[in-house]
């Protein structure tokens, strides 16, 4: 017969289960209209920590609407998108104190290296034709821990 009292071991097991099933950190946003490419990035992030929540958006409007509910710890952002482009998003999030500090990694096929994008909170630029999964992992480990 059980006493109804939760033992320390059971409590630890429950906490572990909760940590495994539900993400405990702020989500990571991936904003890219190429679903397959975004999915590759998501899989790489999940390999760093499978409990990280990753939210994918195909356009800026959906991502901006979601910012009200979820403040991400990191954003992977494509620049060329249908509708408003990545720069519109950068200008938007820079205008609010709570979102202006979010680290952003650009994922693009454009040559943006010559532009000074630090004012937009850009922490890195990954070229779509040259980037490696290890580089994504480095950014995830740096900005989610």
């Amino acid at each position: 017969m059980t006493s109804g009292k939760v033992t320390k071991t059971e409590q630890n097991q429950n906490e572990f289960r909760a940590r495994s099933e539900f993400p405990t950190k702020s989500p990571i946003f991936i904003i890219d209209d190429d679903e397959m490419f975004a999915d590759c990035i998501k899989k790489t992030i999940k390999k760093v920590d499978k409990n990280l929540e990753v939210i994918m958006f195909k356009n800026i409007i959906d991502a901006m609407n979601s910012l009200d509910e979820n403040l991400p710890s990191l954003i992977f952002l494509d620049i060329l998108l249908p509708g408003p482009d990545g720069f519109t998003f950068l200008n938007e999030i820079m205008s609010y104190p709570d979102t202006s500090k979010i680290p952003i990694i650009l994922i693009t096929s454009l040559n943006l290296e010559k532009f000074d994008l630090k004012v937009y909170g850009i922490k890195g630029i990954l070229k779509k034709d040259k980037m490696k999964p290890e580089e994504i992992k480095v950014y995830v480990e740096r900005y989610t821990n």
């Binding site: 397959m36 490419f37 590759c40 096929s109 779509k128 034709d129 980037m131 490696k132």
Partner: peptide, 18 residues
């Protein structure tokens, strides 16, 4: 050239992530 670049970059990424 730009049109060819996007799918080639995707194929490369798929192979790297596999």
């Amino acid at each position: 050239a730009h049109e060819m670049k996007a799918p080639l970059a995707l194929m490369r990424q798929l192979a790297l992530c596999l």
